[in-house]
């Protein structure tokens, strides 16, 4: 015999809560998620005035010069000249293209003995199923070594430009420069939708990135693309949960040491392989069975190292752009 629940009991069931949530009668996060209303960014009257004055002054200073007739004529000439130059460039390139060997055919000069050896012996000589990975990390590894240092030197320049070095301040006061750099101060925090989405997506993205890195020698992918994917996951996490959460596991020190470790591993491993190769010494690193995950000699560790560097670098770029620090 069925028994009717009293309303009191019904209120405790899951169904009640579910339907209530569905109808939007109650916010399920109310009282459970920390919600801090955003402090509105208020300019005092003087600041606004100063800003407008500065802006006007700049435009006055400029247009005294920029609107003279000579400048306009020169500008017009420059425009016309550059359009003509571009057209000539396009025409010349098209002209050249029309004489190049036809695309898509097998009997062009590009398809000579070089790719032949890469394809026919690549699996045995490098142990990588993905011939492109084998090529860039073993046959032509010097280029790739240079490439990872391009990324490194770019990070250094970004650090020079955007890193804010903390100046000792007494009372936690924020300087104008810092406020300009760190725009998160004036932004909403703890957006529930974003946090939920990030909660679901970030692990998937990072796992996919790890898969791409580890699978670099077996299929499409590799250190760089996997690292970029992981970096994107970290950026999403940062956006959802804010710098305080990420600072727990990722600070400037972490970045420094990870990139130092990976790059020096890369350098040393490749130096060993170059040195043994050039002096015709035996390379002791085993190749393994092609197709297995632990195979292809140095390619897998190198992919992991590159992946770590790239993930950290991408995150560092974002953090630098956003806040001027980690």
């Amino acid at each position: 015999m069925s028994r009717k629940k009293t309303e009191q009991e019904y209120r405790k069931t899951f169904a009640f809560h579910f339907f209530r949530w569905l109808n939007g009668e109650k916010d399920p996060y109310l009282g459970e998620v920390e919600m801090k209303p955003q402090e509105p960014y208020k300019e005092t009257e003087e600041e606004v005035k100063a800003r407008i004055r500065e802006k006007n002054m700049i435009s006055r200073r400029l247009y005294g010069v920029a609107k003279s007739k000579e400048m306009k004529g020169l500008e017009r000439f420059y425009k016309a000249a550059s359009i003509i130059f571009c057209c000539i460039l396009i025409y010349l390139l098209l002209f050249t293209v029309s004489y190049l060997p036809p695309v898509g055919t097998a009997d062009r000069p590009v398809n000579n003995e070089v790719p032949q050896r890469y394809i026919e012996n690549g699996l045995q000589e490098t142990g990588a199923v993905n011939i492109v990975s084998g090529m860039i990390l073993d046959y032509r590894a010097f280029d790739t070594l240079g490439e990872s240092h391009v990324l490194f030197v770019a990070t250094v320049t970004v650090l020079i430009l955007l890193r804010l070095d903390k100046k000792k301040k007494n009372d936690g006061e924020i300087s104008i420069e810092e406020a300009e750099a760190n725009d998160r101060i004036y932004e909403p925090k703890n957006d529930a939708i974003l946090q939920m989405a990030a909660f679901v997506l970030v692990p998937i993205i990072i796992i996919f990135g790890i898969y791409v890195i580890l699978n670099g020698h077996l299929g499409p992918g590799g250190g760089f693309s996997g690292g970029a994917i992981i970096g994107a996951g970290l950026i999403l996490y940062l956006n959802a949960f804010g710098f305080q959460k990420t600072e727990r596991f990722f600070t400037e020190k972490t970045y420094k040491w990870i990139s130092f470790g990976s790059l020096s591993f890369y350098c040393i491993a490749k130096s060993y392989s170059f040195f043994t190769g050039a002096n015709h010494l035996h390379n002791i690193i085993p190749k393994g069975t092609p197709g297995a995950i632990l195979s292809s000699g140095l390619i897998l560790p190198l992919n992991i190292a590159v992946g770590l560097v790239v993930a950290c670098t991408m995150y560092a770029f974002y953090a630098m752009f956003r806040k001027g620090g980690f």
Partner: peptide
């Protein structure tokens, strides 16, 4: 091949590597 033939390679690699080292010093 004489050992001295390694020197060009050493000089490129040493300067690359020293760049990495300087990042933690």
């Amino acid at each position: 091949m004489d050992f001295i033939c390694n020197f060009p390679f050493f000089s490129i690699l040493i300067s690359l590597f020293s760049g990495t080292i300087c990042s933690v010093l």
